[in-house]
Amino acid sequence: MTTASPWWTPHVHADRRPRLLARNRIKAALRAWFTDRGFVEVETAALQVSPGNEAHLAAFATRAIGPDGRGMPLYLHTSPEFACKKLLAAGERRIVSLAPVYRNRERGPLHHPEFTMVEWYRAGEPYGALMGDCAALLALAAETAGTNRFRFRDREADPFAEPERLGVAEAFARFAGIDLLATVAADGATDREALHAAVTAAGLRTAPDDTWADLFSRVLVERVEPELGQGRATILCEYPVPEAALARPSPDDPRVAERFELYACGVELANGFGELTDADEQRRRFLAEMDEKERVYGERYPLDEDFLAALAQMPEASGIALGFDRLVMLATGARRIEEVIWTPVAGGSR
């Protein structure tokens, strides 16, 4: 059995190097783009008291030992979000972070345990402004890489075309024949049995212990996501409130929230929000997420009480996180995320 050469072997590095240099150029171009628009680049601590409170995100845990020998549990952040929102509460208006983040239990062609996230916030600006940002950054990455097409597997997209905007409910109806919002009440309560019946009728597998969220995710992953971002990018927007724990409800329909995701070539690139600033509601949602995490994985993460206190002072804002490595993948035609990471973490495919 032949073992693949490690990434640091000279001939392997020589093959990888053009994409890595393109990565550097794209990063420099993005930094200049944000600077030109008045964004302040911030550096947030990777070690946090809470790594985030989403049910299906797994973190790396560690322990800080003080001079007295006493320990304190800490986590590598899964996103700089909590720290960035504290900076908004402190008075910053436009900020951007380009930094490594860490997620456990994630490894594959599009996943790496350490990856680079571009996260930016606009205080006092609508979340629709982030959609314009996304369109501009897709074009900038393509131009910098010297390509006019994004490619991944058998899919292509024009990074210079205006992205399609598609509501989640419309996508469920179009690609799965499911009336999603018929299973969501005005107060955000969900009808698991109604969605289960619709998913079964659509020919998708179900399990007796599937929650409403499980069923939603299955339709999204199996029927909706593969259809997105073909020919041009797609902005999938107006997520149901139960699937938008950090977003404020839409003023047009209380069943949906100001959340969108950006897709190109079937690949999720970014996740944007009109940010929730109601600290009590945020606490309620976090606790619900941690209850679900405990049910599924047998563990829960602490709440960042300092974050919740800052949230009460945070101005209305919009924010978004973009997977930088995935953007570079599409711009350079890479097949796996390790091809665009300078020094991949050991243990993955080479």
Results as ranks from 00 to 15, higher is better:
Thr2Trp: 13
Thr2Ala: 14
Thr3Phe: 12
Pro6Asn: 10
Thr9Ala: 15
Pro10Asp: 13
Pro10Cys: 13
Pro10Phe: 09
His11Asn: 12
His13Val: 11
His13Gln: 14
Arg16Cys: 05
Arg17Gly: 07
Pro18His: 12
Pro18Glu: 10
Arg19His: 06
Leu30Val: 04
Phe34Cys: 09
Phe34Ser: 06
Val42Gly: 01
Val42Gln: 06
Ala46Pro: 12
Leu47Val: 13
Gln48Val: 15
Pro51Lys: 07
Gly52Pro: 05
Asn53Met: 12
Glu54Thr: 01
Ala59Phe: 03
Phe60Arg: 06
Ile65Phe: 13
Gly66Pro: 09
Pro67Phe: 11
Met72Asn: 13
Met72Glu: 15
Leu76Gly: 10
Thr78Phe: 00
Ala83Gly: 12
Lys86Glu: 11
Leu87Gly: 07
Leu87Ala: 11
Leu88Lys: 08
Ala90Gly: 14
Ala90Tyr: 12
Gly91His: 09
Glu92Tyr: 15
Ile95Thr: 07
Val96Trp: 07
Val96Ala: 14
Asn104Leu: 13
Gly108Arg: 07
Pro109Phe: 10
His112Ala: 10
Pro113Tyr: 05
Pro113Ser: 08
Phe115Leu: 11
Glu119Asn: 10
Trp120Ile: 05
Arg122Val: 06
Ala123Phe: 03
Gly124Leu: 12
Tyr127Lys: 02
Ala129Met: 11
Gly132Cys: 06
Leu138Phe: 02
Ala141Leu: 01
Ala141Lys: 00
Thr144Gly: 03
Thr147Ala: 03
Arg149Cys: 01
Phe152Glu: 00
Arg155His: 06
Pro159Glu: 00
Pro163Trp: 00
Glu164Phe: 00
Phe172Thr: 02
Arg174Ser: 06
Ile178Glu: 02
Ala182Trp: 07
Thr183Lys: 02
Val184Thr: 06
Asp191Arg: 05
Ala197Phe: 07
Val199Arg: 02
Ala201Ile: 13
Ala202Ile: 11
Arg205Ser: 15
Arg205Asp: 15
Thr206Met: 12
Thr206His: 12
Pro208Cys: 12
Asp209Val: 13
Ala213Ser: 15
Ser217Pro: 02
Arg223Val: 07
Val224Gln: 06
Glu225Lys: 13
Leu228Phe: 10
Thr234Met: 11
Ile235Pro: 05
Glu238Gln: 09
Pro240Arg: 05
Glu243Thr: 00
Glu243Arg: 03
Glu243Ser: 06
Ala245Trp: 00
Arg248His: 06
Pro249Ala: 14
Ser250Ala: 12
Asp253Glu: 07
Pro254Lys: 03
Val256Ala: 04
Phe260Thr: 01
Tyr263Gly: 03
Gly266Met: 08
Leu269Gly: 04
Gly272His: 01
Glu275Thr: 05
Leu276Arg: 04
Arg283Asp: 08
Phe286Met: 10
Glu289Asp: 15
Glu289Pro: 04
Glu289Trp: 01
Glu289Ser: 05
Met290Gly: 11
Glu292Trp: 06
Lys293His: 04
Arg295Pro: 04
Val296Cys: 07
Tyr297Ile: 01
Leu303Ser: 04
Asp306Ile: 05
Phe307Met: 07
Leu308Lys: 08
Ala309Tyr: 11
Ala310Ser: 15
Glu316Ser: 14
Ser318Trp: 02
Ser318Asn: 09
Phe324Ser: 03
Arg326Cys: 06
Ala331Ser: 14
Ala331Leu: 08
Thr332Met: 05
Thr332Trp: 04
Gly333Pro: 02
Arg335Gln: 15
Arg335Met: 09
Arg336Leu: 02
Val340Pro: 00
Ile341Phe: 00
Ile341Arg: 00
Ala346Ile: 02
Gly347Val: 02
